[in-house]
């Protein structure tokens, strides 16, 4: 890693953290979605740092594009009591905070103490999109087809669930 990459890594992870923490802290739902979009975009930057350009582009399209817009549509179709007083922090939320902090501490200690084996081979990606395309349609052809069937079923099911009831009687 060169110094520039390390600096970019720290800036992008700081952006991702701040977006996620703002998502917890904001009161209005639209603000939460926008801060989550910040997190998704900085994660795409982290993918580019990891030389996964295609995954980064997919992340921008699917998460920052589609899922954020889907959430905003969900917000627009429902009514939210913005400005309503948040209920005061009870012992339950402090208990949750303590549990999550303990979980994070455990995971962090285990990450620090694990000896990851040295890389046995070097892999340098020449053309990321080309190689992913070849791999997806040769080695991963059957999972690709299965996932397309799953996406079709899920979206048809989503339309069926979300359809208005009156449409059936007409």
């Amino acid at each position: 890693m060169s110094t520039g990459q390390v600096v970019a890594f720290f800036i992008l992870s700081f952006l991702a953290f701040s977006g996620a923490i703002m998502m917890i802290a904001f009161h209005r739902v639209v603000h939460m979605v926008v801060s989550m979009a910040t997190t998704f975009l900085s994660l795409a930057g982290l993918y580019i740092l990891l030389e996964a350009e295609f995954v980064a582009v997919v992340q921008v399209m699917v998460y920052a594009g589609a899922i954020s817009i889907l959430m905003i549509f969900g917000i627009m179709m429902t009514k939210h009591h913005d400005g309503e007083e948040e209920k005061p922090t009870t012992w339950k939320s402090w208990f949750t905070f303590g549990s999550v902090a303990a979980f994070l501490f455990l995971v962090y200690v285990s990450i620090r103490n694990t000896k990851f084996p040295e890389q046995t081979q070097q892999y340098v990606s020449e053309n990321n999109v080309l190689e992913i395309g070849q791999m997806m349609f040769n080695q991963y052809a059957i999972p690709f087809e299965i996932i397309s069937v799953l996406l079709t079923v899920a979206f048809v099911g989503a339309i069926l669930i979300a359809r208005r009831e009156e449409a059936e009687t007409e």
Partner: peptide
């Protein structure tokens, strides 16, 4: 990228 056997 950083695992033992890096690949796609």
């Amino acid at each position: 990228k950083y695992g033992m056997t890096p690949s796609l």
